[in-house]
C-alpha cells in the first residue's frame, strides 16, 4: 500500500466501515443475512436493527449467553446482607428495649431482609441489563431512523473500504432499498 498523502485519507483507510442495508420487511432482511453468510461474512460482523423483536426462525438466533442471572443473584446476595445487617445490626448497635420484645427478633428482621433482597435483585438486574445491552451509548451508533417505522436494517462491519464495496453489492443484490455508510464503526 502506498504511503498515505493525506492524514484524513489515512484514517479513512485504516478505520472500519459500517454499512446499513435497509429492507422493507424481515424476510428480505433474513435472505440478505443468509446471503452474506454464504459469501463468507462471519455472523458476528452482521447485526440486525428492528423495531420489534425478530420473529423466531427468521434468523439464526443470537446465541451469546446472557449473564443477567448472575447479576440478579449477586443483587439478591447484596440485598440480603444489607437488609439483615440494617435490621439486626443497627438494633444491636444501639439496643433499646421496647414492649418486652427481644432486641433482634428474627421475624421482623426477615421482613426487612426480604424487601432488601428484592430491591437488590431489581437494582443489580437493571445495572446488569444496561451493561449487557451496552446502554447508555455515549457515541452515536450507526443507525437509520427509518428502522422505527418498520424497516429492518442489516448492519455489516467491514474491516477495509475495499471489502465494503463488495458487501454493498451483496446487500443490493438482496433488494436493499437504501444503503448508508458509517465511517469508523
Amino acid at each position: 500500500m502506498d504511503k498515505p498523502v493525506d492524514k484524513h485519507e489515512a484514517r479513512q483507510d485504516t478505520s472500519r466501515t459500517v454499512l446499513i442495508g435497509l429492507y422493507d420487511d424481515v424476510h428480505a432482511a433474513g435472505r440478505a443475512v443468509d446471503g452474506l453468510e454464504k459469501h463468507g461474512i462471519a455472523r458476528d460482523k452482521i447485526s440486525v436493527n428492528s423495531s420489534v423483536p425478530l420473529p423466531v426462525g427468521t434468523f439464526r438466533a443470537y446465541t451469546r449467553p446472557s449473564r443477567l442471572p448472575y447479576f440478579s443473584a449477586l443483587g439478591a446476595f447484596a440485598g440480603l446482607i444489607a437488609g439483615f445487617s440494617l435490621a439486626a445490626g443497627t438494633a444491636m448497635l444501639y439496643p433499646i428495649a421496647t414492649g418486652g420484645k427481644p432486641i433482634v427478633s428474627l421475624p421482623t428482621v426477615g421482613v426487612i431482609t426480604y424487601e432488601f433482597t428484592m430491591l437488590g435483585i431489581i437494582l443489580f438486574t437493571l445495572v446488569g441489563v444496561l451493561y449487557e445491552m451496552g446502554l447508555p451509548r455515549v457515541k452515536k451508533p450507526p443507525y437509520d431512523p427509518r428502522v422505527s417505522d418498520g424497516c429492518v436494517g442489516v448492519l455489516v462491519t467491514c474491516e477495509t473500504e475495499q471489502i465494503s464495496f463488495e458487501i454493498e453489492g451483496i446487500l443490493r443484490e438482496y433488494g436493499a432499498a437504501t444503503i448508508t455508510r458509517f465511517a469508523g464503526g
Binding site: G134, L135, P141, S148
Partner: peptide, 20 residues
C-alpha cells in the same frame, strides 16, 4: 439511551423483562 433495536438489545430486553 441510544437504543438501536439490535438483536443483542432485544434479546437482553426480553430476558430482563422475564426476570423483572
Amino acid at each position: 439511551l441510544g437504543w438501536t433495536g439490535s438483536e443483542r438489545e432485544w434479546s437482553r430486553l426480553s430476558r430482563v423483562l422475564g426476570i423483572m
